[in-house]
């Protein structure tokens, strides 16, 4: 089945390789100015927890210089989904759509064997490609990660072991969608929607709770944030511990401005504090393993269902 899988999915696998090559070229090409700027601005001296004066500005200047590239990087979150759209969805949908399943599934190989072999081989290829992509991003983002950490979704979602996890999940989803919908375009659409919804759900509801968030209470004037943490919640509370609404906060600031007092000093004087709930940077790999593990388990469950259903009535 290795030859069969390669021959049938050759265009997609070659496209994936080309995409990775382009990614690598872009990464290497853009890395040069970044490293140059890094050294030029002597940013190594500004790494947290350094509190050297002026670092704040230098770091912000550096980040601003490459802001557009960092933003473009976020577009790569779609990469794992591509495994589902272009490898997973056509796997079964194209066979059923064109009727070639009547050819492929009446040789001496059973349907289950056929599907399991193909899925395993394609999963291995997907895993490898995703790992390469993730490694590329991690390498490219090294200067940024040292400055701002990688717990925030804009970095977390693109690095570490979650990327292969997402890709395997997307691949499995695509395959099941193809079996159920029997049409490639429909399967691609549904795969994209379900994949995006899953990712969003995990990001919004599960990831913040993988481990109980830590809380830090600081005076109202303090920035309170440590670089590298993933801040979940940042609220002002009054002396009694009650949360202060934005309206009340605006009112207080206005009052301070009228009185000619520095707003920060005023807030501190009335006993208001800031409560920051966050996940520390030290939990990066733990969270990575949790999330990757979650998606791999989901992928396995979906594959299991697909294998069970493939014995149905394709006609």
């Amino acid at each position: 089945m290795a030859w069969v899988t390669w021959r049938q999915h050759r265009p997609q696998l070659l496209a994936a390789a080309a995409l990775l090559a382009a990614l690598a070229a872009a990464a290497v090409g853009t890395d040069i100015p970044i490293r140059a700027a890094y050294h030029r601005d002597a940013l190594s001296g500004c790494l947290p927890p350094s509190a050297r004066s002026g670092c704040d500005l230098i770091v912000r200047h550096f980040q601003g210089e490459f802001d557009s590239w960092a933003a473009a990087l976020r577009g790569l979150t779609v990469l794992p989904a591509l495994a589902g759209l272009f490898i997973g969805a056509p796997l079964l949908a194209r066979e059923l759509e064109h009727g070639t399943h009547r050819f492929a599934w009446t040789q001496s190989i059973t349907r289950r064997h056929w599907l399991l072999a193909k899925t395993s081989l394609l999963a291995a290829a997907t895993l490898a490609a995703a790992a390469v992509a993730s490694a590329l991003v991690m390498w490219w983002r090294t200067p940024f990660d040292t400055l701002e950490g990688r717990m925030a979704p804009s970095a977390f979602d693109l690095e570490g072991v979650v990327v292969p996890g997402y890709a395997l999940y997307a691949l499995a989803l695509g395959t099941l969608a193809g079996l159920l919908l029997r049409r490639t375009v429909a399967a691609m659409t549904v795969t994209l929607i379900v994949f995006a919804a899953s990712r969003l759900a995990v990001l919004e509801f599960l990831r913040p709770r993988f481990l109980s968030p830590l809380t830090r209470t600081v005076v109202a004037s303090d920035g309170g944030r440590q670089a590298g943490d993933w801040v979940l919640n940042d609220t002002l509370v009054d002396a009694g511990g009650r949360q202060i609404s934005t309206a009340r906060e605006d009112l207080a600031i206005l009052h301070a401005q009228h009185a000619g007092i520095d707003p920060h000093t005023y807030l501190v004087s009335v006993g208001w504090k800031r409560v920051i709930s966050y996940q520390p940077a030290s939990r990066f790999w733990t969270f990575q393993l949790f999330e990757a593990g979650l998606f791999v388990c989901l992928a396995a469950a979906v594959v299991f269902v697909t294998l069970a259903l493939v014995r149905g009535n394709p006609g």
Binding site: G99, R102, F103, S108, T110, R111
Partner: peptide, 17 residues
């Protein structure tokens, strides 16, 4: 399904890749 090793089937339209 192993019996299909002894059965040759050509569906309507002779589907092939």
């Amino acid at each position: 399904a192993s019996v299909l090793a002894d059965v040759g089937y050509v569906a309507q339209g002779a589907p092939l890749y």
